[in-house]
Deep mutational scan, measured.
Amino acid sequence: PDLGLTQLFADPNLIENLKKNPKTSEMMKDPQLVAKLIGYKQNPQAIGQDLFTDPRLMTIMATLMGVDL
């Protein structure tokens, strides 16, 4: 199971919303991170391994779920 990750990354406004959010806007200036996020739309399971190697993803996930870290 993808634990709902498919829906989190399926939002067509995902990148724009993250660019507008004060907690994630600075991160979204990294083209490699943006490319990763776009890739998760097609393969949400890929985030599982990346969560352990890129701490920014935890902040992004929390933001998408509405959790304040």
Rank of each mutant, 00 (worst) to 15 (best):
46 A>E: 11
38 I>Q: 12
61 M>D: 00
43 N>P: 02
69 L>C: 10
17 N>L: 12
8 L>A: 08
27 M>Y: 11
38 I>D: 11
56 R>E: 05
40 Y>T: 02
40 Y>K: 01
38 I>N: 13
31 P>H: 08
3 L>R: 09
49 Q>P: 11
58 M>L: 14
35 A>H: 06
2 D>G: 14
48 G>Y: 15
34 V>W: 02
56 R>Q: 08
60 I>D: 00
27 M>T: 02
61 M>K: 03
42 Q>D: 15
28 M>P: 00
29 K>W: 04
13 N>D: 12
39 G>W: 15
21 N>M: 05
45 Q>C: 09
64 L>N: 01
53 T>I: 10
9 F>G: 02
34 V>C: 05
38 I>K: 12
23 K>Y: 08
2 D>Q: 15
20 K>T: 10
12 P>V: 07
34 V>F: 03
15 I>E: 02
66 G>H: 09
9 F>A: 03
9 F>R: 01
14 L>I: 10
27 M>H: 04
17 N>A: 12
55 P>K: 10
19 K>N: 05
61 M>V: 15
62 A>K: 11
23 K>P: 02
61 M>S: 03
1 P>W: 02
41 K>H: 14
12 P>A: 09
47 I>S: 05
24 T>L: 10
11 D>S: 04
39 G>I: 10
38 I>L: 15
68 D>E: 04
41 K>Y: 12
50 D>C: 05
49 Q>R: 12
31 P>W: 05
59 T>Q: 11
2 D>T: 15
33 L>Q: 01
65 M>F: 09
36 K>Y: 04
35 A>E: 14
40 Y>I: 10
30 D>Y: 01
63 T>V: 15
39 G>P: 01
30 D>F: 01
6 T>Q: 15
50 D>Y: 02
55 P>E: 10
18 L>Q: 00
1 P>L: 13
14 L>T: 06
12 P>S: 06
21 N>E: 05
63 T>Y: 14
62 A>S: 10
44 P>F: 07
15 I>Y: 03
10 A>N: 13
49 Q>H: 13
47 I>C: 05
54 D>E: 05
64 L>P: 01
48 G>I: 15
12 P>Y: 03
9 F>T: 02
51 L>E: 05
44 P>Y: 04
19 K>E: 08
63 T>G: 04
50 D>Q: 04
59 T>C: 08
55 P>I: 08
44 P>T: 06
55 P>W: 10
46 A>K: 12
18 L>N: 00
68 D>A: 02
40 Y>P: 01
16 E>W: 04
63 T>F: 15
17 N>T: 13
39 G>D: 15
55 P>L: 07
58 M>T: 10
63 T>P: 01
65 M>P: 04
65 M>G: 08
6 T>I: 14
13 N>M: 10
66 G>Y: 06
31 P>M: 07
42 Q>K: 13
67 V>D: 14
41 K>W: 14
32 Q>H: 13
26 E>I: 07
51 L>I: 13
